[in-house]
């Protein structure tokens, strides 16, 4: 069975490098699945859930930003923050969500607003995976 290779690169480590059957990536314009033979492709990632499928199982990752390139059956994901299900701290995410929501209501400056919005999205993604 044809396989694709997935590489996830972070500033301080190579998070993952292995083969798998299918990858589903949250792109800015919507989630998209990658199967063997996919056309060459570059897109931005939005905060969401990255799914890596093997024959029998599926691994979920919370991903927050970055890029994905697909080229000759190699999926390369370059991102700053990515977490596996086991690495997520639910209590912390919940706290962060409340904090971000509170800040969004009171915030007037543009930069801080965007930052809080991003923090909220991150927290929601983390919680989504845990459910």
């Amino acid at each position: 069975m044809p396989e694709i290779k997935i590489v996830i690169i972070q500033p301080h480590q190579i998070k993952l490098e292995r083969t798998c059957d299918q990858v589903v990536v949250p792109g800015v314009d919507g989630d998209f699945g990658i199967l063997p033979g996919h056309t060459a492709f570059i897109t931005k990632i939005r905060p969401g859930v990255l799914k890596v499928f093997d024959e029998t199982e599926m691994t979920n990752y919370a991903i927050h930003d970055g890029f994905v390139t697909v080229e000759s059956d190699v999926v390369k994901i370059v991102c700053d923050v990515i977490e596996e299900e086991a690495e997520i701290d639910v209590d912390r995410a919940q706290d962060a969500k409340l904090r971000a929501e509170k800040r969004l209501q009171g915030e007037k400056s543009d930069v801080d607003f965007r930052r809080a919005e991003f923090a909220l999205k991150r927290a929601i993604t983390r919680l989504e995976i845990k459910q």
């Binding site: 060459a40 570059i42 897109t43 931005k44």
Partner: peptide, 21 residues
């Protein structure tokens, strides 16, 4: 890479983001 890539949303947005990175 010499392949023709498809960009999403478009090359300019990607360049800006990649530049920042």
């Amino acid at each position: 890479s010499t392949l023709e890539f498809i960009y999403e949303p478009d090359a300019e947005t990607i360049i800006e983001e990649l530049g920042t990175k």
